[in-house]
Every structure is written in C-alpha cells, then in structure tokens.
Amino acid sequence: MAATTVTDAGSVRIITEVIPATDPRAAQLASGSQAPAQTSFQTQGFRKAHPKVLGTIHIFSGIVHICFGVILTMSEHKNPSLPVVSGILFWLGILLLVSGSLLVESERRDSPVLVKTCCVVNMGVVLGTLVATGIHGTAIIQNMPGCGKPGPFQIRPEWCLNMNGKVLSNGLDCTMVLLGLLEFCVAVAVLAFGYDTVRQHTYSQLAL
C-alpha cells in the first residue's frame, strides 16, 4: 500500500504519496525520469542527411570499383590501361568502403568525433573522385596502349586492329565517371551536413 501524507501550507494543500519499490508504477517513473538523460542531440542535424543510406551508396560503389579493378587487371595484364596502371579502382574503392562503414556506424552512434572522422574521409573521397574522373577522361581520349603512331620498322600489336576493345574500354570509363559523379555528390552532402553539425557542437561547447 502507498502511504499518503496531506500537508496544508496556507491556501495550498500538498498531497505526498510514497510508492513502494515493488509497485509497478515505481519502475515506470524511474524509466521515465532516466529517458531524457539517455537522449543526446549532438548529431541530430547530421542524421537528417540519412548517413546510413549515403554510406550504403559508398559501400556499393566501393565494391563495384574493386571488382572492376580485379577483372581489368586480370584481362589487361599484357596491355594495361591508364586506370589499371594508376590503381585508381583499388584505392578509391577502399576509401569508399571506409567512408561507407563510418557513415553507417554514425547512424547508430551519437558521436561528434565520428562525424568529424566522416568529414575528413569524405574530403578524401571528393579529391579521389576528381582524380579518378581525370584519369578515366584521359583514358577515353587516349589510344589503346601501344597503338599510337608507330615508329620506323615497328608493327602495331594485334589488339590495335580490333576496335571493339577500345569501345568497351571507353564505355567502362564513362560508367566509372558517372559513378564517380554520384560518389562526389554523396561526399559533398556528407561534408555539408557534417560541417554544420561540427560547427553547432563547437558553438555549444564555447557557450558552456
């Protein structure tokens, strides 16, 4: 039974009820009083960008880059193209996997440090996509390896006579350029929301 005490203080009557620990209402009151303390809004602005969705896009793009890098490296071991020689497909793919994993984790953890890390990694993604676009664009306008203007007493390799390989290579490079544009837009969105969140967090710390 709950003990009730009535106290009169002037024109105000105060009713105090003592609830035993075994009462179910005690557990509800305890959980209700602790809920606000467990909720944090430090990265609420960053979560408006749906980092889990953006991270999934980066992870998928990273897997595509690495898979194409393995396939092209194996198929072009005799006459590797510029993207294969530069290794852009591998290191950009790894960078995208790291960025995607951090973004997915930031959806579950309320950590300003994690948001800052995502911003730093996505700055690398922005630079990487710009470099990759330049490499793939250069590969499109270039001839196939070894198919330039032959010198005296030189014969062009057999693969120069088959232009289907060049068409396929150009199509793949164009696909990588479009995919890089998507990655660039995702990284810019992460930087925009992340910068705003970090700025608000820094302002709140200075205010305290």
Rank of each mutant, 00 (worst) to 15 (best):
M1Y: 05
T4P: 02
D8A: 05
D8E: 10
A9N: 11
V12D: 12
I14W: 12
R25F: 00
Q28K: 10
L29P: 11
A30Y: 11
A30S: 15
S31C: 11
S33G: 12
A35R: 12
A35N: 14
P36H: 07
T39C: 02
A49K: 02
G62Q: 03
I66P: 07
G69F: 03
L72R: 09
M74C: 09
K78L: 13
S81K: 06
L82R: 02
P83V: 00
S86I: 07
G93E: 03
L95C: 01
S99H: 03
E107K: 15
E107Q: 15
E107D: 11
D110G: 14
P112Y: 00
L114W: 00
T117M: 06
C118E: 04
C119W: 09
G124K: 04
V131G: 04
T138Q: 15
T138F: 12
A139N: 05
A139K: 01
Q142F: 03
Q142V: 04
Q142M: 09
N143M: 12
M144Q: 14
M144A: 14
G146C: 14
G146L: 13
P150G: 05
F153R: 06
R156S: 13
N164Q: 08
V167I: 15
V167L: 14
N170Y: 02
T175E: 08
L178S: 09
F184M: 03
C185S: 09
A187P: 04
V188N: 07
A189W: 01
V190R: 00
A192I: 10
G194C: 01
G194Q: 05
Y195N: 06
H201T: 14
L206Y: 08
